[in-house]
Structure formats: C-alpha cells, structure tokens
Nucleic acid binder design. Structure first.
Length: 114
DNA sequence: GGTCTGACCAGGG
DNA sequence: ACCCTGGCCAGAC
C-alpha cells in the first residue's frame, strides 16, 4: 500500500470525523477535499472497511440519496442512523433538504488534512 | 499473478 | 431517460 493511498485514507477519516451532527457530505466532495476528485468510489470502499465509530451515515451520494448497504444495516439501517442525527429521510430514501444540510469544511478544517 | 466487484461520479451517445 | 465508458483502488477469489 503506497503512502499516497494511506494519506488519502487518513484524510477521509479525518474529514468524516469533522462532519457535524445534522449535516451531510457527498462521496464526491469527500474525495475532492482529500485530494482525489474522482475517487468517490474509493471513499465508498473506505467507508465500508473503515472504523465503525466514524459517522459514515453522514456521507451520502450526489443526489442526497442513501447508500445501498449501510454497513449491512441496509437502507433502513442508514435511515435510522440519520434520523438519530435529526435528519429527515423521505420515502425514496433521500435526505430531506439535502442541499441545505450539505456541509463543507472551512479552511481550518481543511488544513487538518495535511 | 489476473479479473471482477463495488456505500461513486461525470461525461457522452 | 437510459446505457456505456473511464476514472479511482482495496478486497475477494
């Protein structure tokens, strides 16, 4: 495993850990802020195998839609986890008010991703 | 080792 | 609106 990939993974961990309760980010955005704009899929891999204590439920796809397999809890598990954060989920498993709840790190938080 | 898959995404036909 | 391609790359087999 190369250092570059390890850094990318560590950045993803750092960034996801920063997402405030009640806010969400997209896979693509996470990848971009971590230095690899087209590695959204890799973020999915990292989410699947990464530390379960991180708030992965706050990472959604570009439509504000939930992942198809939230750590084997499925859509229902993901929905429940987000509702516990105070986020409403509609009948098609999309975040209600996604565009408003979408979160972006500020400069200080980005600087943590060195 | 090769090949396929996948919590993704943008672009093109 | 749908299907395909290419990009990303760790796991599974």
């Amino acid at each position: 495993m190369s250092d570059v990939n390890k850094r990318f993974r560590d950045r993803v961990y750092t960034l996801v850990a920063q997402i405030p309760e009640g806010r969400v980010m997209t896979y693509g955005d996470v990848a971009a802020y971590c230095g690899s704009p087209f590695a959204a899929r890799q973020v999915g891999q990292i989410a699947h195998f990464g530390p379960s204590e991180l708030p992965w439920q706050r990472v959604v796809n570009r439509n504000g839609g939930l992942a198809s397999a939230y750590s084997f809890g499925g859509l229902e598990g993901h929905k429940a986890a987000l509702e516990a954060d105070g986020i409403e989920i509609d009948d098609s498993f999309r975040v209600v008010g996604f565009e408003v709840k979408r979160w972006q790190p500020d400069e200080k938080q980005i600087s943590l991703l060195s």
